[in-house]
Design a protein around this nucleic acid. Sequence first.
DNA 1: TAAACATTGTTAAAAATATAACAGTGTTGT
DNA 2: ACAACACTGTTATATTTTTAACAATGTTTA
Lengths: 206, 206
Amino acid sequence: MILPQKSIERLSRYRRILLNNLEKGKEHIYSHELASQLHFTPVQVRRDIMLIGYTGTQRKGYVIKELIDRIGEILDGESHTNAIIIGMGNLGKAITSYFNGKRTNIEIAAAFDTDEQKINRVISNVRCYHISKIKEKMDELDISVAIMTLAPEAAQEVADQLVLNGIKGILNFTSIPLNIPEHIYVEDYDMVTSMEKVAYFVNHNE
Amino acid sequence: MILPQKSIERLSRYRRILLNNLEKGKEHIYSHELASQLHFTPVQVRRDIMLIGYTGTQRKGYVIKELIDRIGEILDGESHTNAIIIGMGNLGKAITSYFNGKRTNIEIAAAFDTDEQKINRVISNVRCYHISKIKEKMDELDISVAIMTLAPEAAQEVADQLVLNGIKGILNFTSIPLNIPEHIYVEDYDMVTSMEKVAYFVNHNE
DNA sequence: TAAACATTGTTAAAAATATAACAGTGTTGT
DNA sequence: ACAACACTGTTATATTTTTAACAATGTTTA
Ligand SMILES: NC(=O)c1ccc[n+]([C@@H]2O[C@H](COP(=O)([O-])OP(=O)(O)OC[C@H]3O[C@@H](n4cnc5c(N)ncnc54)[C@H](O)[C@@H]3O)[C@@H](O)[C@H]2O)c1
Ligand SMILES: NC(=O)c1ccc[n+]([C@@H]2O[C@H](COP(=O)([O-])OP(=O)(O)OC[C@H]3O[C@@H](n4cnc5c(N)ncnc54)[C@H](O)[C@@H]3O)[C@@H](O)[C@H]2O)c1
């Protein structure tokens, strides 16, 4: 089953909130509760949940635990995904430590940098290797996804290596447009874009 | 003129690339060049550019400088936007220094934290104040947008203060769902969602 | 027990977004 | 000069995504 991109994004958000609520001891949740915590609409929530073939209980809403599991089946599939992160500067550190806090089926299994000071240090349970070890480690750890948080000058060069070593997906924060073969899934994020969007809509809500 | 959200996002991306190309001494650019650097399609580029009422020159493409200016008129409006950032941890530092590198009409005018070690330090040209100064500074600097990169426990509390002091837009990285009045534009970003999306599409590309 | 209710699940309609098709037009080459 | 070309600009079409409408159904209440 292949779901709309947007639904995938929302499912991920639902799971976060659901885990949150589960921790607080809640067992059931209504579509409108889930919606209001995310500024979505209840209809949209119900529709997404319909799409993944889960069905709640009338008048009690969804059983949180079950729904989390169902979302897991969809998002995670059977496979655990191993990722690496390249560039252990401020952003790399922030992301690594953030990631480690979350219960997810994706694991950052290694980090890479060129700065001698960072090599062999363990940050948030992730060991940092010299970039020259990348092929070796990618093979060893069966890596399919990479997060790029390194200095932009080196980004294309490293991207080429990733491709050579069979990377399947990249989450790119380096804000330079990477030249990457079509078949590899690339997701770019640039917070300047987010800010400009916020500013635009702030200035245009009459 | 109010443009589609998606076009706004793309315009911001175009500008980045255009600035890039301008620096390299390029003066004209074709829709297909712009497109390929961003993994968009040429048609989409042309359509977006049509929407903002800019027109290129036949067979030479767009005049980069002019197009940058036109995008600026749209995205920036006449007003310079002043922003603050709350939480000068790893993520806050990364974002602040990144932002400062970019030529944009949005400026991070102040930072806030509770950690005494950070108070009054200047990081990437931005001075960090104690969070208790927030009202004072927001008034003084005419702040309309806030970036939240603080510890999640404190996020709601600070958000309430922002609302009280008349914030108009928030870019929220704290991954907890903020309870904020409808009329305030909130953009959430969570990199776990991006990663889960990448993993999903990597595992499902037949 | 039956009516009112609150909530889900689903189908239908609308809106937003992306893609395609192609006309228009200056430019180049012959 | 004029035909072929390589682009842009625009309108039309298709696809994706959101929203609305409402039927179905278990639950509560009287
Ligand atoms: N997209 C966004 O929203 C966003 C936000 C902030 C920063 N950034 C970008 O993310 C990147 C990192 O930002 P930062 O603030 O952490 O910078 P930083 O300078 O703190 O970190 C960069 C790290 O990359 C390492 N590095 C350099 N060359 C390398 C190579 N060839 N292989 C491996 N590692 C290498 C450096 O040693 C350093 O540790 C930059 O490209 C920056 O522009 C993007
Ligand atoms: N959305 C994402 O993709 C993403 C990625 C990484 C981190 N995060 C989140 O961003 C936040 C910061 O991450 P980090 O790695 O920089 O953490 P960090 O611990 O390095 O920084 C947090 C900072 O917030 C400050 N702070 C705490 N309470 C405050 C208050 N009341 N007012 C002002 N400042 C306060 C702390 O002193 C600290 O400097 C966390 O909430 C984290 O979960 C989100």
